[in-house]
Write a protein that binds this DNA or RNA. Structure first.
Lengths: 237, 237
DNA sequence: ACCTGAACACCGTTCAAGT
DNA sequence: ACCTGAACACCGTTCAAGT
């Protein structure tokens, strides 16, 4: 007697399709993701994909949701949204930094996610990020009147900065050296007209030498410092 | 004797092509900008456009540069980049707010510009924005060690927030009511699981009622306040 | 020098036809 | 229920041919 597996291992499914799409996006770039390429990789017809996924937008949305969910699954990012101040042992400012860096690194590793945000905010996985940030603001003791604007500024900065960073990375030809490209731009700034661009000339060396993650975190810290001036008290010991 | 005009008034030129592209982008959306549609509007062949512009990326870059240049031509945004503190009578923080709002409004009016930033930062018109912000930081008396990070955080937030705002606007069907769509999302947040999403439930009413420009400016102010804590002195009177 | 428009090599999406 | 792959209606870009 033969025991049939209820499903062939290689049966098409939304999960398999989304994973194949992520593989293509990461490995060959956004331009390489076509239904024909996807069908070839899955050894099926291009039309079969439409049985499982509505269209290309839905495919990109599902792939993005996957990546963000992954990024949020780190231990430091769950829990701690209690209004009593957290209670999971992580200082709220530090927790916000960890969440922010998690998003930054995830988008850096999957640059196409950045472009996707513009087309589909309010995705389910995003809600978990939003809540995690908001919960830490409660734990920080930010006064109620400032909740919404403080939360909005943080979330906007985190996703905006991560997206811009990834876009810069995507601009480069796949094999080229990132720091060399940056040095090129910094060199261009250093040669700008001193009368018109005194500031950019001054900061050109720092542009060429900066670390992206540190620069990103410095921005998060500036916003946190600004939020601190609203409540007017120092962080809890 | 006949005096020939050196150029027919309707002769093709990069300027005319870019303007026609902007008209299409603003009036019919990003999906409507094709070389065929552009050629039809300019009463020429689709191939003629390639004589004046390298490809579609260059066309979008030129259109974006136009819009940003326009946004920066406002009087309050020029000058004032002297290290002696400005001297054009506008308080630096207020000048930064004006510049930021100018960018925000320009991208709000031309939402496609937001999507374009990801593909081409470092555009010439952008440099003027970058310099204008940096110059005001000097005027604010920010210490040298903080120049780069403070500048970077401001510029990142301004373009990131403006882009995200425009993307949200673009998501909606052209005819629909913006506040109704926001109320829908806010309603969704209000119905989230209280155990998992206490923060989002709390701020849902503010999400539905907020003013986008005010929210944006509040973020700029938070960063400026954070920058203030770095230098540790109050703004000059 | 500048313009024309057919041709080429692609797309996303649909759908009759298969199993 | 799920899959196939040809067909449809598009794209951006090129290029021989015109003026």
């Amino acid at each position: 007697m033969t025991i049939r597996t209820e499903r062939r291992n290689d049966a098409l499914s939304k999960e398999r399709i989304v994973q194949a799409a992520i593989d293509i996006l990461d490995g060959e770039g956004e331009g390489a993701l076509t239904f024909r390429a996807l069908a070839r990789r899955l050894a099926t017809g291009s039309g079969a994909i439409y049985w499982h996924i509505a269209d290309k937008d839905a495919l990109l949305a599902a792939a993005t949701d996957d990546v963000v969910t992954q990024a949020m699954s780190g231990g430091a990012m769950s829990g701690g949204s209690m209004s009593d101040g957290g209670g999971d042992g992580v200082e709220p400012r530090e927790a916000i930094r960890v969440i922010a860096l998690g998003i930054f690194d995830a988008i850096d590793a999957h640059p196409w996610v950045g472009a996707q945000f513009s087309r589909a905010p309010w995705q389910p996985a995003m809600l978990r990020v939003f809540e995690a940030i908001g919960g830490r603001l409660w734990a920080l003791g930010v006064p109620e009147a400032a909740w919404f604007n403080a939360w909005s500024a943080l979330v906007t900065y985190i996703f905006g900065a991560a997206t811009q960073n990834a876009a810069n990375a995507r601009l480069q030809a796949p094999g080229t050296d990132r720091s060399a490209a940056l040095a090129d731009i910094a060199g261009g700034w250093a040669r700008l007209d001193p009368a018109q661009y005194p500031f950019l000339r001054q900061v050109a060396p720092q542009l060429g030498a900066h670390d992206d993650r540190e620069q990103f975190l410095a921005g998060v810290d500036l916003i946190l410092a600004g939020i601190g001036t609203v409540k007017g008290k120092s962080p809890p010991a």
